[in-house]
């Protein structure tokens, strides 16, 4: 079972990987698009990197722009859309 807190923590670890720069102090409330400058491509990279890190597949069928509002909203989406092992 992957909790939302664990997902928030893993997303924060992956942010520097997809943004290719240091990201300090990120937490569930950090705005991905506005504050960090994530765009649609890097946002999707983040989701796919997360899949690899978790070893689980995430259903991206319903993934919308709103889900990328904050680290917490993305973690909530992922928690609700985890599929079988990747």
């Amino acid at each position: 079972m992957t909790s939302c807190d664990q997902l928030v923590s893993t997303i924060c670890e992956l942010l520097p990987v997809v943004l290719k720069r240091e990201v300090s102090g990120a937490d569930a409330g950090t705005a991905l698009l506005d504050a960090l400058g994530l765009n649609s491509t890097t946002g999707l990279e983040l989701v796919l990197e997360l899949e690899e890190r978790l070893g689980l597949e995430i259903s991206v069928e319903d993934l919308g722009r709103d889900d990328f509002a904050t680290v917490g909203s993305l973690a909530a989406y992922v928690a609700d859309h985890l599929l079988a092992d990747a």
Partner: peptide
């Protein structure tokens, strides 16, 4: 490769 993966998956 990541961009292509996004095209296919997403």
């Amino acid at each position: 490769p990541m961009q292509v993966r996004i095209f296919r998956r997403y």
